[in-house]
Design a protein around this nucleic acid. Structure first.
Length: 479
RNA sequence: CGGGGUGUAGCGCAGGUUGGUAGCGCGCUUGGUUCGGGACCAAGAGGCCGGAAGUUCGAGUCUUCUCACUCCGACCA
């Protein structure tokens, strides 16, 4: 046994001491990711990638349920193609990486490494869409993209990141809008049901919307330190890109019309959200549905006759209902307890000679650390119930945190005071003028996270200028 | 991109002001004893001190330049 608990305490910086360091510690100690030899790029390690695979599997299933198909586009975009849509190129040009040579030969036209693939999809769509019968086109791709970010952090912002990008074309504005909101809902319910992360849904302001979009919708989550993280976006492009790229079709009325487009994406950044919403000073805390290992069996006194065999037997039985592993390493039990807690495994099962005699096992919940003594006969049903309960209570806890850190402000002094105290979301009315949005950012470092769909007003005048308010906005400092 | 901090063994650090050929803890390997909240004993392995140039008989240490990480801002998933 250890002489003291010092090492445990040293392993992870406490959240309250330094949240940023706490985050980095978890990423490294839980072996989610590591730094690569290229600045700002990361290596997603097996445990982190297993989380991503679970996210992919579930999202992909939901995309296909709503009629989407997967494709694969090139990773290079010719400069001329990138430049076809004015706002889009202005938005992304500062952060694209360029390929100028093929082997030793200089290319006639340089190629950018995709920062996003709108232009590639559009270029393809213009060729394959002729008639209303060709619509809608509901494509998605899983890939990585490159944006030459200046400051980077694992998962939250890296030069290259994994994501999925959906790109669709529709015959009418109504259909495109419907699709945009459908996918926003898909993201929202995915976050809430699967990741136990409560999100706010709404629209971005003009200033914050995607380069080239008519409207951008977002889901925003609150991290444990009260800061916001944009967790998924869905854009309605209208016919802006279609006009720039010539995506036209003949409609039922024999009129030539432009396609109405959408795009939507979610990235590995969401793993950062899982860490920062659920984690604690002992490490990662994974919601059962996304956890690569849902239950870890720790045999105690495994040198004693029958313990290993019992552990194997339990694993076989539990494998039918959840993702289970046995820790058979020759570490001390106490070491294993701490290790799997740090890695966020939802349930630990301890089984030793005493348990075998009593025909029971010990279950310990990662979320509440509650210890349950469960008769072998009831194990499977109990595990299923506990997994569901952990999932639900993690969501409830995250929601409670967000609610407790969401306030309203009707004046700037009030706004500033609240943000300087306990950081969180602030609901405040806004006149709709960009000048006010910028003034608030200047004074408080808070940005307009979104204009929530729930527009229940908290006042009548703009929190900044005092003129009549047009919209309710949720403000916050963001990652 | 502006301002600060840090680069020495896998990880965390000492050594640096006073230049002399590298040390501690954890981890790792092997053997043994252990095992219900990060065990113990013994014997080992592992580093041209982020990189380059310079000063010097001699550089982890001094000078210059670079690169990376990190925090705080500005910009973005």
């Amino acid at each position: 046994m250890a002489k003291d608990g010092r090492k445990l305490v040293e392993a992870i910086t406490p959240m309250d001491a330094d949240f940023a360091q706490w985050y980095t510690d978890i990423v490294k100690k839980a072996e989610l990711a590591d730094y690569a030899s290229v600045r700002g790029c990361m290596i997603i390690r097996p445990y982190g990638y297993a989380i991503w695979e679970n996210i992919q599997r579930e999202l992909d299933r939901r995309f296909k349920e709503t009629g989407h198909e997967n494709v694969s586009m090139p990773m290079f975009i010719p400069e001329s193609l990138l430049q076809k849509e004015k706002d889009h190129v202005e938005g992304f040009a500062p952060e694209v990486a360029w390929v100028t040579h093929g082997g030793t030969e200089k290319l006639a036209e340089r190629l950018c490494v995709r920062p996003t693939s709108e232009t590639l999809f559009c270029d393809h769509y213009k060729d394959i869409i002729q008639s209303w019968r060709d619509l809608p086109k509901l494509y998605n791709q899983w890939c990585s993209v490159v944006r030459w970010e200046k400051t980077t952090r694992p998962f939250l912002r890296s030069v290259e990141f994994q994501w999925q990008e959906g790109h669709t074309v529709h015959a009418t504005e109504e259909e495109a809008q419907e699709e945009t909101l459908r996918m926003l809902d898909t993201y929202a319910s995915f976050c809430e049901d699967f990741l136990a992360i409560p999100v706010l849904k709404g629209q971005k302001t003009e200033k914050e919307k995607f380069a080239g979009a008519k409207a951008t919708y977002t889901i925003e989550a609150m991290m444990h330190d009260g800061k916001a993280l944009q967790s998924g976006t869905s854009h309605n492009f209208g016919d802006g890109f279609a006009k720039a790229f010539g995506i036209q079709f003949t409609d039922r009325d024999n009129q030539l019309k432009y396609g109405q487009q959408t795009s939507w994406g979610m990235s590995t950044r969401i793993i950062g959200a899982i860490i920062m919403v659920h984690g604690d000073d002992s490490g990662l805390k994974l919601p059962p549905r996304v956890a690569p290992v849902q239950l870890i069996i720790v045999p105690v006194q495994s040198q004693v006759q029958g313990v290993k065999e019992k552990a194997e037997e339990l694993k076989a039985a539990l494998s039918r209902i959840c993702r289970v592993k046995i820790d058979e390493s020759d570490k001390q039990p106490g070491w294993k307890f701490a290790e799997h807690e740090m890695r966020g495994v939802p349930i630990r099962l301890e089984v030793g000679p005493k348990d075998i005699l009593k025909e029971q096992v010990v279950l310990v919940r990662r979320d509440s650390r509650e210890k349950l003594f469960v008769p072998m006969a009831e194990l499977e049903s109990t595990v299923m119930k506990v997994l569901e309960d952990i999932q639900a209570s993690m969501f409830a806890r995250a929601l409670e945190l967000r609610e407790s850190r969401t306030t309203t402000a009707v004046s700037m002094p009030e706004f500033t005071a609240q943000l300087d105290g306990r950081q969180g979301f602030i609901k405040a009315m806004w006149c709709g003028e960009r000048a006010c949005e910028e003034a608030i950012k200047e004074k408080t470092a808070a940005t307009a996270r979104l204009m929530p769909f729930d527009q229940t007003p908290v006042g009548e005048t703009c929190v900044c200028c005092g003129k009549p308010a047009k919209r309710l906005v949720v403000w916050g400092r963001a990652y």
